[in-house]
Every structure is written in structure tokens, then in C-alpha cells.
Amino acid sequence: MTDLLYSGTEDDLRSAVRSLLTDRCGAPELLAAVEAGTPGDLRLWPALASDMGLAGLLVPEKLGGQGATHREAAVVLEELGRSVAPAPYLTSSVVATEVLGGLGARNEAAAELLATLASGECVAVLAVPLTTEPGSVPLLPGLSGTVSGVADAAAAQVLLVPTDDGLYAVGARDPGVTVEPLVPLDLTRPLAAVTLDGAQGTLLAGARDARAALDRGLLAGAGLLASEQLGLAEWCLEETVRYTRERHQFNRPVGGFQALKHRMAQLWLEIVSARAAARNAADALATDSSEKALAVSVAQAYCSRVAVHAAEECIQLHGGIGMTWEHPAHLHLKRAKSDAVAFGSAGAHREALALLVDLPGPDSA
């Protein structure tokens, strides 16, 4: 039977990550950085990746990583979701790392790049739109063309570029490569348009091997994104409960009014279910379960809606202060909305789920 409870090691990891994020990425610091357009100045990544060694959680020990599992990575993402931290952990330490790991231990070029990622010295991102869902990777006709909506491309040193010929590793600052920042809804997860024009790269794998590795990376990204959404939703509920206990109206805490109690209780029930779905997806990925695609689609189909609902309730139940830029609730709503379309929308995952359980919808009949 799958154990969805957190282990002592996972609890310790959570405490360490939360302590770091509280010190480096508290609400005042994050709001000031976003307002100034410089969230990268918080310098979270060196502390997370190198000092704590989190960049190498999913990298084997023989390559300098921690040799941990997706369960531990999920705990890190829960905390990153709580603080909506501007760090390329999901894109580099999960998606790109899983793509490279899927190329096999005998792939020397991929192994060398994995070791560099594990050290925290390098950030690599997969050059596909953030909205790309597992099993539908767009391919460039060689190292030429433009890919828009690539998350964390501006912070990357290496781009993993899927082409008709296979998967290439391309230096993000090499000649023939242009990374143009875009203005995203969620300023804590920057997007960019990547244009390749006569660029040179290292071929990591042919088309067939690349396809399997790409699907592996995107599936891991979608599955662990659910943990980020879980952490975000938990913060929204906890912050709302705290505020409604302190905010008084008619000489009593507003949290004591039955209508608000019911809304928060309903949200709590949704978050409990989201935690089960997210943990199940992380465990299925960690154990390489034959039903991992099913677990991931269930988690994404459910957790996306819960995160958005939690963020909306957080803003509404905070009243006037929740609608201001001075309160961090708007950052959580923007991250929730952005996450809702990342690695496939909830609708796309419901369609995938219907196919996996052989239960096509009316339009497929």
C-alpha cells in the first residue's frame, strides 16, 4: 500500500527549506523585488542549489547529486509554492534533470551536464512553452526558429532544444541564440522567447531516444507541479484563517461568522484531497509505478482548480487589503493562474485521464 505520509527526513527537509525562504523570500522582500522588477536579486538560487544541495536531489550520487526521490523534491516544491519563490527549481532541477536522466547513464554528454546541474553551477531549461503537456512536445526544424513562453530561460546557461533530429544542448548565450524576456502574468516565474538562428549545439540523443526522455521530463514536471500548487493553496488557507481571527467586525472576529467558516472549511476539505493527489503523484514517480501517468493526470486535473480557488478565496476573505499590491495574495493568485496552464491544463489532463482509463468523453464517441 502506498504511504502518503511524510517521513522524518521529509519533515526535516521542509523545515530547512522553509527557514531559508522565510529569511530570504519573506513577503516584504518578495513584494519589493517584484515591484522593482528584480526578483532575481533575492539570490535564492545559490542558497537553494549550492548551499543546501537541492539542485541535485534527483541526480544520482555517482554524478554528484543527492540520489533522492521525487517525494523529497515534492516537499521542496511545496515550500516554494507557499512562498511563490522566484527560483528555477521546477524547470531546471526537475524537468531538465529528468530529461537528461532519461537519456541513460551511458550518455556521457548528458551525464556531464547532469553533474554540472547537481553542483548548482548551472541552470538548464527545456526550450518548450510552459504550457506544453506530456506527450506533445513541439519540435524545431533543426537549430532554427523561435519558441515563445519558455519559463526561466533568462536565468539559464543551457537550453535543451528538441528538434526533428533529436535533442540538443545549446548555450543560452552562444552566438545565434537570443533570449528575449516577456511580460508574464506571474512575475515570479519569468517567461522568454528563445530564437535560434544558426546556433551550434551538442546532440545529446536522436529523435527516438529524445522523445522518451522528453515525455519523462514533462511528466515529472506536471506531477511535481501539483505539489507546488498544494503548497500555494495551504499558504492561502493558513493566511486567511490567521487574518479572519485578527480582523474584528461588530466587536467580534470576522472568522467567527458562519458564512466565512463554511467557506474556509470547504477549502480545507479541498486541500486535504489535493494533498492526497499530489503525494500520490510524487510517490508514483518516485517508485516508477506503471500507473504514474494516471496519478499525474489525476493530480493535475484536481490540484490546478484547488490552487486557483484557494487564492481567490484568500483575496476575497481578506476584504479590501486583499485587493491591494501591498498584500502578497495577488502574487499567489497569479502563480495559481499560471500554474493552471503549465504542463497541460486541467482539461487536457482530464482528457488524458479518460484515455488512460478507457472512458472517452461524448465528443470521442
Rank of each mutant, 00 (worst) to 15 (best):
V341P: 09
P28G: 02
E108Q: 08
C122R: 12
R211Y: 08
R245K: 01
E312W: 03
K62T: 15
H70Y: 06
Q157S: 09
S7N: 09
T132N: 04
S93Y: 01
R247K: 13
A310T: 00
D174S: 14
R216D: 09
A172N: 03
L333Y: 10
G37C: 03
V194R: 00
G223F: 04
L48Y: 02
L160K: 03
A55R: 01
S290V: 14
E133C: 13
V17W: 10
L269N: 14
A153P: 05
S227W: 11
A169E: 08
P86L: 05
G206I: 10
R216T: 06
A27Q: 12
L225V: 13
N280A: 09
L31W: 01
D209C: 05
Q229R: 02
D51C: 01
D339M: 08
A47R: 13
G104K: 04
E112N: 12
R106T: 14
L4A: 02
D164W: 14
G8H: 13
R350N: 04
E78C: 09
E121Q: 13
L143Q: 07
R82S: 07
A301V: 09
E78F: 06
S92I: 00
L230I: 01
Y6V: 09
L42F: 02
E112I: 03
A154P: 05
L267D: 00
T9I: 10
A47P: 06
L80F: 00
R18Q: 15
A282W: 04
D288N: 15
S364R: 14
R14M: 05
H332C: 11
R43E: 15
S289A: 11
A156S: 02
G102T: 03
E112G: 08
V177W: 04
V95F: 15
N280P: 04
L103Y: 08
R106C: 03
G361F: 14
D209P: 08
L359T: 15
T240C: 10
A105E: 12
G67Q: 07
V170F: 09
F343Q: 07
D11T: 13
P88K: 05
A278F: 03
E239P: 09
Q300N: 09
E234L: 08
M323N: 12
D11A: 14
L13G: 08
G256Q: 10
A329D: 14
L331P: 02
L100K: 00
A118M: 04
L21T: 02
C236G: 06
A226L: 07
R242C: 12
D186H: 07
R211C: 11
A212K: 07
D363R: 15
L140D: 04
V75Y: 08
G56Q: 03
D339P: 10
T202C: 11
R14H: 15
A87Y: 10
D197V: 15
R71Q: 10
R106E: 11
V241K: 11
A207R: 13
V170L: 05
Q66D: 03
A301H: 05
Q316P: 06
G135N: 08
A115M: 06
S345F: 13
L90P: 02
Q66M: 08
W235R: 14
A276Y: 02
L269I: 10
S273C: 10
